[in-house]
Design a binder for these strands. Structure first.
Length: 281
DNA sequence: GTCATTTGACCCCT
DNA sequence: AGGGGTCAAATGAC
């Protein structure tokens, strides 16, 4: 549910386009943030948090209905409401750690997913009423394990933990935080290679990097092993675009790209979902 | 004893 | 109807 599934998007094109427009706006906001450095006291990254991939089809608890006394299991009918609106975003990290104190409250095996999904709520849900929650799903096995974390709501608690030393000491060239989105949705039915421009942004050694691959991405061939070669080609072919949209590209890029699904040429658009890992070397 | 995790059941939503 | 999100009793760790 947390993932933008192509088949569902195909069924609701209008909604999808609205999401894309929103994504574009978010990107513009991010650009502004990057161009306007924050002061020493500012919590810059926090203000940019919401600009990561909007998990549009996720919803946020309207009313958790947390009472001190809970009814017995059989009396729980209608005791809680499903999440209703969205304030969610996705991060892909090599660790579950994110500097906040979470308490696990559930785990589910998800259909067609290799790994189970874990559900966390803020430790301070009851003492401070913090409604932040997250879902963590492993998406890649060790040794280069990666976790897709979907956050819902922002922390309102004050007792956040410091980022663990493990996280701080996380040294390159291990994969680092990365999120990406497809900027536009178009297709080229003639050559069966839809054009899906990609934005990639990451935080690597405290340095923000944003790359904008605006070339044609042969999505249909995304699963093939030469994907990285394609991206490299694309990058060199659009070096001017990259340099105009990034502050620094001093790192070599090492990427694994995978697109799970991308289809529906009949409706004249395509969409892919995927993961990108980026290493600092 | 306290708090976190596990796990099966329950419930909402599509 | 079934998948996915949440609850809470049972269990484990400290």
């Amino acid at each position: 549910m947390g993932i933008l599934r192509p088949e569902k998007l195909c069924a609701n094109r209008k909604r999808l386009m609205e999401e894309l427009v929103m994504g574009r706006d978010k990107a513009a906001q991010l650009q502004n943030l990057l161009e306007k450095p924050t002061g020493p006291g500012d919590s810059g990254p926090a203000s940019a948090e919401g600009l990561l991939i909007p998990a549009s089809f996720q919803v946020v608890s309207e009313d958790s209905g947390e009472n001190s006394k809970r009814p017995a299991a059989k009396e729980r009918r209608g005791c809680y409401k499903r999440r209703k609106t969205l304030d969610a975003w996705i991060k892909i990290l090599p660790t579950m750690e994110d500097g906040h104190a979470w308490r696990k409250y559930g785990q589910k095996q998800i259909l067609n997913a290799k790994f189970s999904r874990c559900y966390f709520r803020c430790t301070h849900k009851y003492d401070q009423g913090c409604l932040a929650t997250k879902q963590v799903q492993k998406i890649q096995e060790e040794p280069h394990q990666m976790y897709q974390t979907t956050y819902f709501g922002h922390h309102t608690c004050t007792n956040t933990l410091k980022i663990s030393q493990h996280t701080l000491d996380y040294d390159p060239p291990q994969p680092y935080l990365l999120s990406f989105q497809l900027n536009n949705i178009t297709s080229d039915v003639q050559d069966q290679h839809p054009s899906c421009p990609i934005s990639v942004k990451t935080e690597c050694n405290k340095e923000e990097i944003e790359c904008n691959f605006s070339g044609k991405l042969p999505v249909a061939a995304a699963a093939e092993s030469n994907m990285w070669a394609d991206l490299l080609t694309m990058r060199s072919a659009h070096e001017d675009v990259i340099s105009s949209t990034t502050t620094t590209i001093s790192h070599d890029l090492e990427m694994d790209f995978l697109i799970d699904e991308c289809v529906d040429f009949q409706n004249d658009f395509c969409f892919g979902e995927g993961e990108v890992s980026l290493s600092c070397v």
